[in-house]
């Protein structure tokens, strides 16, 4: 497939996943605030600010808004066109990428993505948000999940599909680390926390809910919510489809489908890095994670995921592209030789 096309498919898929995860974070935080009444401004800021930090956009936010009020943060995360990671921008970017490869995606994908985009652009979106943020966020999540299903059921599972899968799982792994990182302020820098207050338990349940992991977690651990078990579940679970390990395994699987190189072998840096990361997650333990410090561990994990993405770009997308100027020179030199 054309490198440019593959690049667009990959980013379309990443941005859809990003929009969904942002909706998840906002949704859970709003739900959580319903439970904790009588919060003063400082407490509210303490709730919202980590979310901005998790997406890495705090400088931009500080420039756009004087204070981290609930209204400012949700506005920033949901609608703000200048925030490159807002739901609105993510969907617009996904659609722009889809538009570049209209001929390569099924009309079902295009129509659903375009419908979501038109909805977010319409006055109806704003009305629904003002009326019931939960219904609004539910729509975004549902649309993203629907797109996952549409893609699975209508797209031929060829190379382009595997690039879409790779983009989706890379983004989901990254987002899960960010959601997990939201409550790191309540943890010691290194080591596991010794006590877990009721508020802490509520907050960590919210983290699970953000990842649709509450039911699955409960089946395994009952109502006992501890940061260590939550982290273990969201990082290392073999079967849960939003855990980092699961996502990296899918990513690795897609990379190997793209190149045809079997597991435990590699033909480029992307496969080497994803294979290594997968082994770390498969054989790592949650005690090591907390010994290292959860926040630092997650930072490192994000870096490693980023490196896989960069290596993919180098291997498949960024084939010796040269600047127009250099290319003109090459042609002129060539044409002189005859």
């Amino acid at each position: 497939m054309l490198s440019r096309v593959v690049n667009s498919l990959y980013w379309m898929s990443r941005y859809i996943e990003r929009a969904e995860n942002t909706a998840r974070i906002v949704d859970t935080t709003l739900q959580l605030l319903l439970d904790s009444r009588h919060l003063d401004d400082a407490q509210l800021t303490a709730h919202w600010m980590p979310i901005i930090q998790a997406t890495g956009d705090e400088n931009l936010f500080a420039r756009l808004y004087p204070k981290a009020t609930g209204h400012a943060v949700t506005e920033f995360l949901v609608f703000h066109p200048e925030n490159p990671n807002s739901i609105f921008t993510s969907v617009a970017q996904a659609r722009e990428n889809a538009r570049m490869v209209r001929d390569q995606i099924t009309s079902e994908i295009w129509e659903e993505l375009n419908r979501l985009y038109l909805f977010l652009n319409s006055g109806k979106a704003r009305e629904l948000w003002d009326d019931s943020p939960f219904d609004f966020l539910q729509q975004v999540k549902a649309s993203s999940l629907q797109l996952v299903g549409i893609a699975y059921a209508t797209v031929i599972h060829n190379e382009g599909w595997h690039f879409m899968q790779a983009g989706k799982f890379l983004e989901r792994a990254d987002q899960t680390t960010r959601i997990l990182d939201v409550r790191h302020a309540s943890l010691p820098v290194k080591g596991a926390p010794t006590t877990v207050s009721q508020t802490d338990a509520l907050e960590w349940s919210a983290v699970l809910r953000s990842c649709s992991a509450w039911d699955a977690y409960k089946d395994i651990h009952g109502g006992d919510v501890s940061p260590v078990k939550v982290a273990e579940f969201l990082l290392l679970s073999e079967n849960f489809p939003r855990s980092v390990r699961f996502c990296v395994e899918e990513l690795d699987h897609s990379l190997r489908n793209i190149s045809g190189v079997p597991a435990r072998r590699f033909s480029n840096d992307a496969e080497k890095l994803s294979g290594r990361l997968l082994a770390e997650l498969e054989f790592g333990t949650v005690d090591e994670v907390f010994a290292h410090g959860l926040h630092d561990y997650l930072d490192l994990l994000q870096l490693k995921l980023g490196n896989v993405g960069a290596a993919m770009f180098n291997a498949y997308i960024f084939q010796p592209f040269v600047s127009m100027e250099d290319e003109i020179l090459v042609q002129q030199e060539f044409q002189q030789q005859q």
Partner: peptide
Amino acid sequence: SMRTTKGL
């Protein structure tokens, strides 16, 4: 040639 994931 066109640039593809499998080369030119």
